[in-house]
Every structure is written in structure tokens, then in C-alpha cells.
Amino acid sequence: MDKAFEQRTKAPGSVPTRNQILTIGDMEDFKNDVLQELKQIIKDYISGAPGKKWLKSAEVKKLLGISHGFLQSLRDSGVLPFTKIGGSIYYDYEDITFMMTTNKSVS
């Protein structure tokens, strides 16, 4: 939430109530916050970034369009680093993009 909005609604010694009056400025601030978040979501979607740092195997397979066996071979060969916690394997999105960039070829 916008810091200016929080400062206006949380004056020292006052507790906001359910019946608190909203001003047009408050609504404009809220609209701008929502639009900014939507723009970031759309930007992430267009760029192909999944929006989170750590991905599970199923997400990586879907992202790269590869099979379970090929993902296993990338792990086994050390091409794609991973972290195993319990029975789940996680991959850092930055490691995936690095792998794709370093293995890029020009034909």
C-alpha cells in the first residue's frame, strides 16, 4: 500500500475504523498502486520470467519444454545446478537463464 496513504489514514493516536471516509485522492492512490502492480505482472509475463526465484522440476520442464529424462541428464551432467530439500528438487531461475545463455549458438 502507498506510504502516503498509510500516513494519512494512521495519524498518531487514531485507529482506522470500518466506517472511515475515503477521499478521491485515496482512491486515486489505490488505483495507481493497482495499475503499477498490474504493469509489473504483465512485464514479467511478457519477458517470460515466472515471477519467483525457485522453480520445481515440473515448472522447469514446462518452461523449457523438455522431458523428465532430459532434465535429469542436465542435473547429472552438472549443466543445471539444483537444490534438493526433502523429496523436492528446486532450480534457481537465474541458473536456468544462465544455462540457456551460455549454451546459445549462432548458426
Rank of each mutant, 00 (worst) to 15 (best):
D2S: 08
A4T: 12
E6H: 08
T9H: 15
T9M: 15
K10V: 08
G13C: 05
G13Y: 06
G13W: 06
S14D: 06
S14V: 12
S14P: 00
V15Q: 14
P16N: 02
P16T: 06
T17F: 05
I21D: 07
L22P: 02
G25M: 13
D26A: 05
D26P: 03
D26W: 00
M27S: 02
E28Y: 06
F30L: 15
N32Y: 03
L35H: 04
E37N: 14
E37K: 15
E37R: 13
L38S: 08
I41F: 10
I42F: 07
G48K: 08
P50N: 01
G51N: 06
K52Y: 11
K53C: 13
K53A: 11
K53M: 07
W54Q: 08
K56A: 08
S57L: 03
A58I: 07
A58C: 10
E59M: 05
V60S: 03
K61H: 01
K62E: 14
L64G: 07
S67R: 12
S67Y: 04
S67T: 15
H68V: 09
F70H: 15
F70Q: 12
L71Y: 00
L71A: 03
L71P: 04
Q72H: 03
Q72P: 02
L74T: 04
R75D: 00
D76Y: 05
D76K: 13
S77C: 09
G78C: 04
F82K: 05
T83E: 14
K84L: 04
K84F: 00
G86C: 13
G87C: 05
S88P: 01
I89Q: 05
I89F: 07
I89N: 01
Y90Q: 05
Y93S: 05
Y93P: 01
E94N: 10
I96A: 00
I96N: 07
F98V: 10
M99G: 01
M99R: 09
M100N: 12
T101Y: 00
N103P: 03
K104P: 02
K104T: 10
S105A: 12
S105N: 10
V106R: 14
